[in-house]
């Protein structure tokens, strides 16, 4: 569903990505590891179409051009969340549905947020209470916001799931549960590509991709990963 071939993205001092190839099949869960600045976020930005590589090719669902309709099949969990301040939680969750809705549903939703039940279910999945739905986003804590962003991804019902360090602000037990949730989502036709700041949470992933200085270091199963590989990653 995602195919990167020889992708290069130039940067200020050195390329942010250099000759990188990667593929993701439906049902696959791929973890992206590397030191900060290794190119994880850049790779995810290429994967969701934000950045166009200067050379190499990207294919989504077998196509080179990313049409608007196709974009709704790609869901991103951003590092900076990108929720909309000034809106209630439910409105924020519903922004995940925009591409699927007709224009009158969009307008109606502005007056009175639609689909309360699916919204409440999405919140329940990320272990938040439905009573949060009418609250303004600004009244939530950092961890709550992160989970709202995840719930929005759930609402979008995308196939290609991209996540940029989604668990950073959560306490470890909760982070583990939500990681399981994300991994559980990645059943065909869905696939998951996710960057991780911890290398001790790799179980459950099908493959681990290591990046260093914008280049591919390894691409193997977690079991095949050696301690030396990890050491090289952060050196």
């Amino acid at each position: 569903m995602l195919e990167l071939r020889d992708v290069t993205v130039p940067g200020r001092e050195r390329p942010r990505l250099r000759g990188l190839s990667l593929s993701l099949k439906p049902g696959e869960c791929v973890a992206l590891v590397g030191a900060s600045g290794a190119g994880k976020s850049t790779l995810l930005a290429v994967a969701n179409g934000l950045i166009q590589p200067t050379s190499g090719s990207v294919q989504w669902f077998g196509e080179q051009r990313l049409r608007r309709r196709m974009r709704s099949r790609i869901g991103t969990l951003w590092q900076d969340l990108r929720l909309i301040e000034g809106l209630s939680v439910q409105h924020n969750l519903n922004t995940g549905r925009l591409a699927a809705w007709s224009w009158w549903q969009v307008l109606l939703n502005l007056l009175q947020p639609l689909e309360s039940r699916p919204c409440a279910e999405a919140l329940a999945q990320v272990e938040l209470d439905a009573s949060l739905l009418p609250l303004p986003l600004s009244s939530l804590s950092g961890g709550q916001r992160q989970r709202v962003a995840l719930a929005r991804l759930l609402r979008q019902n995308a196939e290609l799931l991209l996540a940029d360090e989604p668990l950073a602000q959560l306490d470890p037990p909760l982070a583990r549960r939500l990681l399981q949730l994300l991994l559980g989502l990645a059943m065909p036709p869905r696939g998951l590509l996710m960057s991780l700041h911890r290398s001790d949470w790799l179980e459950g992933f099908d493959r681990v991709v290591g990046l260093r200085h914008g280049e591919l270091l390894f691409d193997c199963s977690p079991e095949a990963l050696s301690a030396a590989d990890l050491e090289q990653l952060y050196s």
């Binding site: 990108r82 925009l98 969009v106």
Partner: peptide, 28 residues
């Protein structure tokens, strides 16, 4: 610009982005 960008990349049309990210942003 980030929330608008996120919406756009998730497949919303320019008008929807304006409506949801723009108008809600300046609304109050």
């Amino acid at each position: 610009p980030q929330p608008a960008q996120a919406l756009r990349l998730a497949g919303s049309s320019p008008r929807q982005v304006l409506l949801v990210a723009g108008f809600n942003g300046i609304g109050r």
